[in-house]
Design a protein around this nucleic acid. Structure first.
Lengths: 242, 242
DNA sequence: GCGCCGGCTTAACAATTGTTAAGTCCGGAA
DNA sequence: TTCCGGACTTAACAATTGTTAAGCCGGCGC
């Protein structure tokens, strides 16, 4: 039943929201266009006014903002099952970029189709609205991460959050998982330079916490990782009643 | 017509969204309970499961998160006309705190009343949804601010953003406006210590950019301020078509 | 295979920011 | 009015993070 193109989205909504089977079937029935993006390819740019939303079918994307002096901040990392530009349903103009981190498959659904579905099934609207609120909850934790945690804790937190989210869509097996960012991009996510990112990664490796090599994280010491990350996943609101 | 308790909210929605007069009248007709909070009083705490939402009628609030070691990060500053806990309509549990910065008057509206209104007027639902998306857009810029800008630019940005938002609800006259945070709280907003906040404020004063005294910002040199803030207000989506 | 290029690694040094510790100032309570 | 406490201010010093620069490594195109 969830063996559709947008299976990851359906799986995530089924386990984390109170979506009815009817609503999920209606979502699966939405008309979409599948498009592939290459590593580093822009999907949407700051200022764009898109008329469709995308579901990540496979691969990783990031949302980011670049400021005047060229510095870039990564705002969020997106994985299969995410709707990284759903906000465009009500905010006409993109205020940031959406970029493919790895080769990606995206299912594009016209705003008009989504609006029609919401009109005929208001509970689907609630599910979508909730998804954008979850987005905001993740942004809030990201602010805390960048604002208050030391760089090594910050990196541990990003890693644990990503792993939790990947687990929800069945993308983690064993002690390793994909995180296809360069060290420079990890730095842009943390708000530090690539040189400092490298320092932190080396320290984590020497301390036997984790290894990061060519886009793959391997956890060596789960206990130490948890200690560093200070991760409290309540903000992911991963059960319907939270 | 906008001389109601929630005038600031109505004014903001009228100018920044495409809300119809009928929708705005329906909003004004919502039943509410007015409650007053004192400076520093908690309105909602992390973990609460509220059954109503509030509109800020008067005063300032902040949303914040406190991490294990006691450090606190301010996530957003809220002003009259804001709906700082609208996300609870779909996320049952608070994942952060909402605190009154100054003495505040808040109008509380039951979730059930809001849900009823949305059901009978879906366009009101769109307006509310959009408002939470705007919230998320402000969070995104806040991430950029904390992650990429040097502390003096960061403070300038916070000040300019706050002023823009205060202007929308008619709370700025001349070159001064209220920002009732202590230096420690400004630091918690920027992700720096109170000592460093003090350094930055002194430098801005010596450079003739602005003065901050007892919760009031006075702009001395608008040009220098703009230069520091690197402020691009597009993310505030302050016209209906953005 | 060879060379190129992007990404990784490291080191030395500089700048920013945090920590600690003393005050000072000022408004409200007694 | 006086005193008290919270907020502000400053300085000295420490820690973290940025900057610059150089070399290395490894995959990919020729």
């Amino acid at each position: 039943m969830t063996d559709t193109t947008i299976a990851a989205l359906i799986q995530r909504l089924r386990t984390t929201t109170g979506a009815s089977d009817d609503d999920l079937r209606a979502l699966e029935a939405l008309p979409y266009t599948l498009r592939n993006y290459r590593e580093n390819q822009s999907i949407l740019r700051d200022g764009d006014r898109p008329s469709e939303c995308c579901v990540i079918v496979d691969g990783f994307c990031v949302r980011s903002k670049t400021i005047e002096d060229g510095k870039r901040q990564i705002l969020s990392i997106h994985i299969p099952g995410d709707l990284p530009d759903l906000q465009n349903l009500h905010l006409a103009t993109m205020d940031h970029d959406l970029v493919a981190l790895s080769n990606c498959a995206l299912a594009f659904i016209a705003h008009s189709a989504i609006r029609d579905l919401i009109r005929s099934r208001p509970t689907v609207g609630d599910i979508f609205w909730r998804d954008t609120l979850l987005d905001a909850a993740v942004f809030r934790e990201w602010i805390v991460n960048v604002g208050q945690r030391a760089a090594h804790n910050r990196l541990a937190h990003i890693i644990v959050e990503l792993r939790e989210r990947l687990r929800m869509v069945g993308r983690v097996t064993g002690d390793a998982f994909a995180m296809p960012l360069t060290q420079e991009q990890i730095g842009e996510a943390m708000g530090v330079t690539s040189v400092h990112t490298n320092r932190i990664l080396r320290q984590l490796r020497l301390d036997g916490v984790l290894e990061f090599h060519r886009g793959t994280v391997k956890i060596l010491n789960e206990h130490k990782l948890q200690e560093l990350a200070q991760f409290d996943g309540r903000y992911l609101h991963s059960s319907p009643s939270t």
